[in-house]
Design a protein around this nucleic acid. Structure first.
Lengths: 112, 112
DNA sequence: TTTATTTGACGCAAAAATACGTCAAATAAA
DNA sequence: TTTATTTGACGTATTTTTGCGTCAAATAAA
């Protein structure tokens, strides 16, 4: 049996990995980019611009909502999806911190 | 049967998702950070600084090697692992491009 | 040579991710 | 009210990921 290893890593590490995992599928990246390209919060069936079925896309949207990268507000029978700039900013900070820690050391590394 | 959907997305999108997936596990992030902290290419059992078994860590290392973020060179019976600055730089470019496309639009989005 | 050390390959089991069909609730339109 | 539309919840099948034990090859040490 595979043990529950979720709590074996630091919270920061777990949080970072979860953010990267959110972008670990082309559909989810495309959803974010589509939302951005519309320049406004959008409603309707996003699956029409993706090569996947509606429920599958809905599932990817749900994951993006759960991690906080997008928000969904109910507007009558429709749901309005929006990018969440705060979370996107947080993602950038996480990435930059990681990149910084990796990049700083690169110059002193002798590889080949 | 679940159809093969791998080629339904653009190559760029698939490539980006693969990079993010490489960091989608805390162990893989920690391995990269450990390599960077050593300030040199290292050899030996990295699993000693991770809460996972040796073969499991080896598998994560293999994934990082396959995506190109680290390199491994054979040195006698030992294997020397190094960060690959080129790939890390490429990762930053991919991230910055994505962030740019998302961030640009954020200012014009009205969310709440 | 014999014995240890280091490492990756291989296989297996459990868990998670992926893709999608069906259904029901909620609202809008007729 | 009846009918259509929109959406998420739920279940299911398949694939992928994760974690690890075992084994063998390759080198180093005795």
């Amino acid at each position: 049996m595979v043990k529950a290893k979720s709590n074996l890593f630091s919270e920061e590490l777990t949080n970072s990995a979860a953010l990267f995992k959110a972008l670990a599928h082309p559909a989810r990246i495309q959803i974010l980019q589509y939302l951005a390209s519309q320049k406004t919060c959008i409603t309707g069936d996003i699956s029409e611009v993706l090569p996947l079925g509606r429920t599958t896309v809905n599932q990817h949207i749900k994951e993006l909502k759960e991690i906080g990268l997008i928000k969904g507000t109910i507007d009558g029978v429709k749901t309005k999806y929006c990018l969440n700039p705060c979370k996107i900013e947080e993602f950038k900070e996480v990435f930059d911190a990681l990149y910084g820690s990796l990049e700083n050391s690169c110059s002193t590394i002798s590889c080949d």
